[in-house]
Simulated assay, not measured.
Amino acid sequence: MRCSEVKNNLVDYATGKLNSVEIAEHLEKCEDCRLEFERIKNVVSILSEYKIEEPSEFYWSNFLYRVKRKIAQRNNISTFALK
């Protein structure tokens, strides 16, 4: 495999979405790709620890109003016109 092919697939390989003997063999031989793979693995590891909290029901209940209000503020339109 060429380096360009390997690098295009490193994210999927690092996340386990892709299992490839060819990539594994390439990484054993190619220091540049191996370093890139290690960097990607570190980022994937950090991101996997990050927990995203879902917004509350209240957040979604007035979401559209807040978006309209922000648009109106940017366009200097009265928020009373949004109701």
Rank of each mutant, 00 (worst) to 15 (best):
I77C: 12
A81I: 12
L82I: 11
F63E: 03
Y59K: 09
D12K: 15
S61H: 02
K68G: 12
R34V: 02
R39I: 05
F58C: 05
N62C: 13
E38K: 13
L64E: 12
E5V: 13
L82F: 06
K68M: 12
E5M: 03
R39E: 08
E25S: 12
N76P: 02
R69K: 14
E49D: 12
E25Y: 06
I23Y: 02
E28T: 05
L35V: 09
P55S: 07
I52G: 08
F58I: 04
I46D: 03
I52C: 11
N8A: 15
R39H: 03
K70Q: 11
L47W: 03
V6N: 10
V6I: 13
L64G: 01
A24L: 07
L10G: 06
E28H: 02
E57A: 09
E57L: 04
M1V: 11
S45G: 07
T15I: 14
L82Q: 11
L35M: 10
K51V: 09
K7Q: 15
L27T: 00
E36C: 03
S48M: 01
N19F: 07
D32L: 09
D12R: 14
V44G: 09
C33M: 00
E28N: 12
N9V: 06
Y13F: 15
E28I: 00
A24I: 00
M1I: 08
F63W: 03
S4L: 05
F63C: 04
R66T: 06
R66C: 08
Y50S: 05
I23E: 00
Q73G: 15
E5F: 12
F63N: 04
A81Q: 12
R2T: 14
I40A: 05
R69D: 05
E22Y: 02
K51C: 00
N62L: 01
V11R: 14
N42Y: 01
T79L: 06
E54Q: 08
E54P: 00
V6T: 13
I23G: 01
E53V: 06
T15E: 14
S48G: 09
F80N: 15
S48N: 10
T15F: 07
D12H: 11
R69I: 06
A14D: 03
F37A: 08
K17F: 07
K41S: 11
I77D: 10
I52E: 06
S78A: 11
I46Y: 08
I52Y: 14
Q73E: 15
